[in-house]
Nucleic acid binder design. Structure first.
Lengths: 245, 245
DNA sequence: CGGCAACCTTGATGCAGATCAATGCCACCG
DNA sequence: CGGTGGCATTGATCTGCATCAAGGTTGCCG
């Protein structure tokens, strides 16, 4: 049986008063637009859930019934063509908000990469919450605007950058927002596989692997293990990423 | 002198009561979230402006002082790499809203393709308007969400589709939202040049030209002139666009 | 510990689309 | 009306990345 056919599991379907108050992700997420005094209202509609690696918890084309807020782990969002070609549109980490859509169906699928914990909110209930907390609506608009800017950067990457520049951009992005190792700055974990990176950057697995090897032999990075990267020359790599070389 | 160095011209810097009430673009735009009775308030802060073909009226990296609403013509939004490589992130037509950004600077440049008319709104003033009309804020969120979905489609196109599929997708998109000829359904104008299409689809001018010629000789389309397209086989072209062939 | 499976790396070869190079087609203007 | 400049088309060649094809590495499980 494929992991992607397993179903996510609700841990706490009823919610409890302090689920949200004690949430690690709240400071990073749209939820902090709800004031402490009213946090129980948010907790009442939050369904805390987790998903094993490989589980698909949003399916492109399905009715868009819920919003999601990631509180642990990493998620890949992607779109497929009928013959199986895949484009990963982004990776979502702690605090990331998923499911913004005007249309009645999800525009992309989402899968857990590692063990993921998230809160599910019914769209209908969130709508009434938004009417009471305009600050949350403003916050959502800010999130959407930020993602739009990131999407435009990604279009530039996919349309016009070389494989080397794509990897440099990706590594700089991960070093900024990824999971940092405590041991050293400029060193971080890559929770996703080479295949995921390839489908995010519009390349093949082989080109990703070769290009990383080349960046290492050119002295830009170190590769302590296949899931870890250390950046040796941040300024030079940033230059590569922005097309200065 | 290059066209891009000319400056847009304000036609009506003070605004007048019926500027917005009679605006052709209003039904298509976020402005209609302001009720008729209050439309003069919108008109008071609208600066109606127009731009000649080739004029750059938003410059990537400049302080983001205004929002824009297109009321006539077509605009290209784009990002550049230092060596001149260009990625067009989208074309904006009548009713389109530009300038959403959290950051203090614009994330892209915008140029008039043909003669463009637009309304400029100071961000600070729009902010106070948004506080009074939450419906407008909701409308902006809807716009941002829609653009995000479009951006994800474009990532799939740029990362994973062939040149033929890219052109098919582009033509289907234009036939849906472009300027239709009155003469015939399935026939429409292309206000942008081959170079613009290439930079939007992540291709070169030559590949765009060759691929269009091929689509014509394969019976999918007709090319009455270089700025006009007629679709002969919409279903087949749609199949191509979605990767079914 | 050994055998398997999933993933990653490396090498050889192929091809879609880029690049280089004319040529054609208008629209504009003196 | 002939010249000029900007865009589009078409052809010849080149190349960056994909594809095809082995190995190598890691970690799991019996």
């Amino acid at each position: 049986m494929y992991a992607s056919s397993t179903r996510p599991v609700a841990i706490d379907p009823l919610g409890s008063a302090n689920v949200c108050a004690n949430c690690d992700a709240r400071p990073h997420s749209v939820c902090n637009a709800v004031p402490d005094s009213e946090i129980s209202r948010l907790a009442a509609i939050a369904m805390v859930t987790h998903a094993e690696p490989g589980t698909t918890f949003i399916q492109e084309g399905d009715p868009a019934t819920h919003f999601f807020n990631i509180s642990a782990g990493t998620v890949r969002m992607y779109k497929l063509l009928p013959d199986g070609r895949r484009q990963i549109t982004g990776f979502a980490g702690v605090g990331h908000f998923l499911g913004l859509a005007v249309s009645e169906t999800y525009a992309f699928s989402a899968e857990a990469i590692d063990c993921v914990r998230f809160c599910k909110f019914s769209r209908a209930r969130v709508r009434t919450l938004l009417d009471d907390y305009p600050a949350m609506e403003k916050r959502l608009l800010a999130v959407a605007s930020t993602e739009l800017v990131a999407a435009q950067d990604q279009m530039l990457l996919l349309g016009r950058k070389t494989a080397r520049e794509r990897l440099a951009s990706f590594l700089m992005l991960q070093s900024r927002q990824g999971v940092l190792c405590q041991s050293s700055r400029n060193r971080f974990a890559l929770p996703m596989s080479r295949g995921d990176i390839a489908d995010y950057l519009g390349l093949t697995i082989e080109t990703v692997s070769r290009t990383l090897t080349k960046l290492r032999s050119d002295g830009f990075i170190e590769i302590p293990s296949s899931t870890e990267i250390a950046i040796r020359a941040p300024a030079a790599l940033e230059g590569l990423a922005t097309g200065m070389a």
